[in-house]
């Protein structure tokens, strides 16, 4: 990534620059429990995400990782526990409001808008930043057009960054899997998130695609300064990318620390090797 782009990005990364010092708590999850009709998905989990870090959430299948992500971005509301984001305790809110507060995410099963082009999909990421009313848009000329162009410029920078210029106007349904994942990352980035949640960003990718994606994630973290929490199954990738790792198993937290600490944690080794409890 070149220097010129970096300047542009920092100019537009409004919400990442929110007065919270690098290394301070951006998000705190305390004593969260979540259940569906009596089935416990998450039991009494606490951890934090510090500003500027890449935080991984790992664990075997069914450990409650995606549920945890869904709780963080407000899709599920936990029965117990609190979530504090940027110093403010989360009240029960619609999921759309969490996104407006600056939490963006990607999905385990790609959730792009199939009827739209790559460009339009990424533009939807900026919907929360577009303020002009319906009436201005009905007229188009003037404020609405200026707003559209301003956001188009921001989106074009993301398109450049993700190296997807050639598919700008292609309907996303026609793209191969790896590119769809990249477009989805673009859509999340377009929202200028303070916290970016990635749900298995590399699932189903080949080695080359994984390398590309890892590079994008690191670049986003370093150049935009965006805090990232990610779920990933590929241990090699997780250990290389992340600053700290939290390990879940059967909805409980069994480990938390740097990649090295987690790797040597006996509980974690048991969980992965399937030692009976």
């Amino acid at each position: 990534m070149n220097v010129h782009l970096q300047e542009d990005l920092s100019k537009h990364t409004l919400r990442a620059d929110d007065g919270i010092a690098k290394g301070a708590d951006l998000l705190k999850v305390e004593n969260i429990s979540l259940s569906f009709g009596g089935v416990k998905a998450i039991t009494d989990i606490s951890f934090d995400i510090k500003k500027g870090e890449i935080r991984a959430i790992i664990g075997p299948n069914g450990a409650g990782k995606t549920s945890m992500l869904n709780v963080i971005n407000g899709f599920y509301f936990p029965q117990q526990g609190t979530i504090t984001f940027r110093g403010e305790k989360r009240r029960r809110a619609r999921a759309s409001e969490t996104a407006r507060d600056g939490i963006a995410r990607t999905f385990q099963n790609i959730a792009l808008f199939k009827g739209m082009s790559t460009l339009d999909n990424i533009m939807t990421g900026r919907i929360t930043l577009q303020k002009r009313s319906l009436l201005w848009h009905a007229l188009w000329k003037g404020p609405a057009e200026r707003e559209e162009i301003e956001h188009r410029e921001a989106v074009e920078r993301i398109i450049d960054f993700l190296e997807i210029e050639h598919i700008r106007k292609t309907p996303v349904g026609r793209l191969p899997y790896g590119l769809q994942k990249r477009v989805e990352l673009g859509r999340a980035l377009a929202a200028d998130p303070a916290l970016l949640l990635l749900d298995e960003p590399m699932a189903g990718m080949n080695l080359e695609e994984k390398a590309d994606m890892s590079r994008f994630i690191l670049d986003v973290n370093q150049q935009y300064g965006t805090t990232i929490a990610l779920i990933e199954h590929d241990m090699g990738v997780v250990m290389d990318l992340s600053d700290r790792v939290v390990v879940l198993d059967y909805g409980k937290k069994i480990g938390d620390g740097t990649p090295d600490e987690v790797r040597n944690n006996p509980d974690v080794i048991d969980a992965y090797l399937g030692v009976p409890h």
Binding site: D120, T128, A191
Partner: peptide
């Protein structure tokens, strides 16, 4: 413009639309 994208996002996948901040 934005209204059209908001509607299409709602149409194509309402859950994802909500999670990216569309009311």
């Amino acid at each position: 413009g934005r209204p059209g994208r908001t509607w299409k996002a709602t149409r194509d996948m309402d859950i994802a639309a909500e999670l990216i901040g569309i009311d």
